[in-house]
Computed example of a mutant assay.
Amino acid sequence: MTLVNFRDPATLADPAGRWIRPGALYRSAQPFPNDNAGISAQLRTAGVRTIVDLRGEAEARDDDWAVSAADGVEVVAARIQPTSGELAAAMREMTTDAGLGAFYLLMAESAPEAVKLAVEAAARPGGVLLHCAAGKDRTGFLTALLLDLLGVPAEEIVADYARTGAALTQIFEGLAERNRAALNDYENGTLVVPRPLLEAPAGAMTAFLELVGSRYGGTEGFLAHCGVDAGTVAAFRAKAAASAEQAVAPAAGVTA
């Protein structure tokens, strides 16, 4: 068994190699049901040396990455809690794709230390895998921020996010098996999941990037707000940018 929705954004978002160095950054869902020899071999082949786990404490299990950790992969817990009073209220009010994008920024703003830790881990040598539970929401907005740092155009960032839609059936099957109690709550009508959260709509990522631009002047401004220093940004670009010029030049960013 291997990771669901595992991919290198460079493969599809940048097949010509204009912005991203292949093998620097990967994304996926969490392991279903947990880590195993097949997943460890998959990561070894891809050159992954660091895993950034974006899930909240209640979502993670001690043995989730036991096999890969024993194989020498370091696991960094950058916990972004998916619910809080403010996030729960925003989820209840969510009805549109743009509302999901606003929810992403609210979730990122709620966890500046986790965002900082994740970006610092992404700048480490070797391949780095970002994942949350589904590999769609927290993984999606952090991948978007990192791709924007490399100057990847907004339309390609949005397209990379939307590709997760093709894997959602498999992802939801894995989540249902792993979280049977939560599924029972959903079936009994006590857990309401807004329609946009069940999809990977392009409009959500478009809205997220536009909000980052309008509120913070772009990705670098938002990451600085989270405590990410210029040296970390430079280190990530030096590692993951396709060319030396990109490694030192500011990213294009997204402005409103």
Score class of each variant (00 low, 15 high):
G140C: 15
H131P: 03
D53G: 06
G135N: 05
V75L: 11
V48C: 04
H131T: 10
G227S: 09
E245W: 15
Q170N: 15
Y216G: 02
T255Y: 14
P153N: 07
S40Q: 02
T169G: 10
A89W: 14
G72P: 01
E156W: 09
R138G: 06
E177V: 15
W19P: 10
D137A: 05
A77G: 12
T139L: 05
V158I: 08
V193G: 03
S84C: 05
S40P: 02
D71S: 14
G218W: 00
F103G: 08
P194D: 06
A118V: 06
A242Q: 01
L43T: 01
Q170V: 14
A88W: 09
G72F: 12
E74A: 14
E177W: 01
V115H: 00
D160S: 03
R215D: 11
T143H: 09
D97I: 04
L150F: 04
N179K: 11
A176N: 02
F208R: 04
L168G: 07
R178L: 04
A207K: 05
D53Q: 10
P31T: 00
T219E: 04
A167L: 04
T206M: 05
G217M: 01
V76F: 09
L129S: 10
V73A: 03
L149E: 10
V233L: 12
A102H: 10
L142M: 14
G217A: 12
F208C: 06
V248M: 07
V248N: 11
S28Y: 11
V48Q: 01
A249M: 12
D160P: 09
M205V: 07
A252I: 15
E177G: 15
E86A: 11
G253W: 04
I157W: 00
P250H: 15
A134Y: 06
L146K: 02
N188V: 14
T45Y: 07
D185L: 12
R49E: 15
A13N: 11
G135C: 04
W19K: 04
D148C: 12
N179D: 11
A121C: 12
A241Y: 06
E74W: 07
L106K: 06
R21C: 06
A202Y: 10
G140W: 00
F103K: 11
L142H: 02
D8F: 04
R18V: 11
S28R: 09
A114S: 07
G56A: 03
A166H: 08
V152W: 01
R55G: 12
A60F: 08
L87D: 05
F141Y: 13
Q170T: 10
R79Y: 11
L209Q: 00
P194L: 00
L117R: 12
G140A: 13
A181F: 10
L130A: 03
